[in-house]
Design a binder for these strands. Structure first.
Length: 432
RNA sequence: GCCGGGGUAGGGUAGGUGGUCAUCCUACAGGACUGUGGAUCCUGUGACUCGGGUUCGAAUCUCGGCUCCGGCCCCA
C-alpha cells in the first residue's frame, strides 16, 4: 500500500521550511514593528460564517463536513471572516483601534496550478475601528514595508477608492444587483470585456450612455498621484462621489507622509463583494504566471454583516506561498548557515560515552552540536560531519583523554588543536 | 468543471518503429583504509504512475483513473 499526498498539498523539507520560516519571521518583525499583535483562530469554523460573508455558492469550493454532533463545519478558506468573528466574540469592548495580525493555512477545494494550492498560507492584518485615511495609509505602508523587507522589488501596489464608483451608481440610481454585475466585470480586469458590457450591443446598463462613458474613462485611470486631478475633473459633476474623492485625496497626501511612494492609483481595481465600500488595494508581481496577485486588502464593514455594530476595518492578506514564489523568482533566497556548527566524533568504541558527555556540555553552552548515533566508523563520522558542513569536529580519542584532552579539528582549514575537555566549549565559541 | 503537455530507483535522466539482464549520473550502505573528511576505485541497494485492452510478448501501442505542470473558469 502506498500513500500519496492529497491533491494540491505539499510537503516542505528542511531547506524550503527554513526559507519559509525566514520569510515568516521577517513579516512578523515588520508587523510587530508597526504595533500589530498576533492572534490565532481555529482551522475550522461554522460553515455559516463563510456562507454569510461570501454566499452559498462558495460551498463547492470549501472543505466542509459534519462533525459527530451534526454541526456543519468547514476548514477555513480565508481568515478575515474568522477575525471578524473573533472581534465580535471577544474584543468589542477593547480600546480602539485594535491592530492584529495572523499567519496560518487556509483550505480551498480548487484546481491546483502555479501559485494555487488546496492548502495554502495567508499572512494578514486588520486594523479595527480606525476608519480614516491615516489608518488606511498605515496599513498600506506596512504592506509596502513587508514587500521591501522580503526583497520583492517588483511588486506594484494598486490602490482604488470604491466610494467614487459607488457614488456614481448612486447618482444614477443604479440598483444593487446591477452594481454587483458591473463590479464583477471590472474585477476581471478585462478592458475589452468591460467595453462590451458597457457600450456594446447588449450593455448591462441600458439607456444611460453618460454613466457608461464615465465608467469606461474612470476605470482606465491608472497612474501616480498626479492623476487625482483628472479623476476630479471627470467626477466633479456628481456630488455623490465627492466625499470619496476627498478621502482618496487625503489618503494620497497621507501616504506621502508615511513615505510610501511605490504605489499606483488604479481606478480599475475592484473587489467582487459588496461589503467593500472604501479604499481597496491589490499587489501584483509580474512573472508569477496566472496567479500574480500576492496581496488583497481594503476597508470594509464585515462586523456589521455578522450582526455587530458598525465598525470599519482595514486590512490585507498576503498570499504567503506566492510571496515565496516571488522571492524565488527574484533570486532573493537567503544563504542560510548550517543548522549545527559542531560535531562530536568518538574515535573508538571506548570513548563513545565520553563523546555524549562532551556533546551535552556543548549544547548546554548553546553551541548547536551533533554526535554520531549510529556507531559509524570514525572515518565515516568525519565524512558525515563534512557533509553537514560543520565548522568544528571534536575528536574524542583514548590517547588525548588520558591527558584530559580532546582534539578540535577545524573542517575548513583542516588544522587541529589539542584542548582540555573542560575548555572545549570556550575554545569552540572563539572559533566559529 | 474545461483545454493542452508530462509521469522510468530517494533526486536527475537514456530508451520509445513492441522482443537480451532497462542506460547513465547522483544519492544511500559497505569495502579498499582499525586515530583523520572532501579525491579515486570496487561492491551493493533501488524504478518503468495505476487499471483495463490489443498481442505469443507492452516501459514502448490504445482507452480510462490518479497525479504533476501550464492555461481557462473562479478567486472570499
Amino acid at each position: 500500500m502506498e500513500f500519496e499526498r492529497p491533491r494540491g498539498t505539499r510537503d516542505f523539507l528542511f531547506e524550503e521550511m527554513r526559507q519559509r520560516k525566514e520569510a515568516e519571521n521577517t513579516l512578523r518583525r515588520v508587523f510587530e514593528n508597526y504595533g500589530f499583535g498576533e492572534v490565532q483562530t481555529p482551522l475550522f469554523e461554522d460553515l455559516k460564517l463563510f456562507t454569510t460573508k461570501s454566499g452559498e455558492e462558495i460551498v463547492d469550493q470549501l472543505y466542509n463536513f459534519k462533525d459527530k454532533g451534526g454541526r456543519d463545519l468547514t476548514l477555513r478558506p480565508e481568515i478575515t471572516a474568522p477575525i471578524s468573528r473573533l472581534y465580535l466574540n471577544e474584543m468589542q469592548k477593547s480600546a480602539k483601534p485594535i491592530k492584529l495580525y495572523y499567519y496560518g493555512s487556509c483550505f480551498r477545494y480548487e484546481r491546483p496550478q502555479k501559485g494555487r494550492f488546496r492548502q495554502f498560507w495567508q499572512f494578514g492584518c486588520e486594523l479595527i475601528g480606525a476608519k480614516s485615511p491615516e489608518g488606511e495609509a498605515e496599513v498600506i505602508a506596512m504592506c509596502n514595508s513587508s514587500l521591501e523587507a522580503l526583497g520583492i522589488t517588483t511588486a506594484e501596489i494598486n490602490v482604488n477608492h470604491l466610494g467614487i464608483i459607488r457614488g456614481l451608481f448612486k447618482h444614477f440610481d443604479i440598483d444593487e444587483a446591477t452594481q454587483r454585475e458591473i463590479m464583477i466585470v471590472i474585477d476581471k480586469g478585462d478592458k475589452e470585456l468591460l467595453k462590451e458590457s458597457l457600450i456594446g450591443e447588449n450593455p448591462i446598463i441600458k439607456d444611460n450612455s453618460e454613466l457608461n462613458e464615465v465608467l469606461l474613462k474612470l476605470i482606465d485611470m491608472v497612474g501616480d498621484s498626479s492623476i487625482i486631478k483628472d479623476i476630479e475633473e471627470l467626477v466633479s459633476p456628481y456630488e455623490e462621489a465627492r466625499d470619496a474623492l476627498e478621502e482618496f485625496k487625503e489618503l494620497v497626501d497621507t501616504l506621502k507622509s508615511f513615505q510610501v511612494t511605490n504605489y499606483k492609483l488604479n481606478l480599475g481595481v475592484a473587489r467582487g463583494l459588496d461589503y467593500y465600500t472604501g479604499i481597496v488595494f491589490e499587489v501584483y508581481v509580474q512573472g508569477l504566471g496566472a496567479q500574480k496577485q500576492v496581496c488583497g486588502g481594503g476597508t470594509y464593514n464585515l462586523v456589521k454583516l455578522f450582526g455587530g455594530e458598525d465598525v470599519a476595518s482595514t486590512g490585507f492578506a498576503l498570499g504567503f506561498d506566492r510571496l515565496m514564489n516571488a522571492i524565488e523568482e527574484l533570486g532573493g533566497k537567503k544563504e542560510l548557515p548550517p543548522m549545527v556548527n559542531t560535531y562530536v566524533a568518538a574515535i573508538s568504541d571506548s570513548t563513545r560515552q565520553k563523546a555524549f558527555e562532551i556533546t551535552q556540555n556543548l549544547r548546554n553552552a548553546d553551541i548547536p552540536t551533533e554526535v554520531d548515533l549510529s556507531r559509524k566508523k570514525f572515518k565515516k563520522i568525519l565524512s558525515y560531519a563534512n557533509k553537514l558542513n560543520v565548522k568544528n569536529v571534536v575528536l574524542v580519542g583514548e590517547r588525548d583523554l588520558e591527558e584530559g584532552n580532546v582534539t578540535v579539528k577545524d573542517m575548513e582549514s583542516g588544522e587541529q588543536e589539542i584542548v582540555a575537555v573542560e575548555d572545549v566549549a570556550e575554545y569552540i565559541k572563539s572559533n566559529l
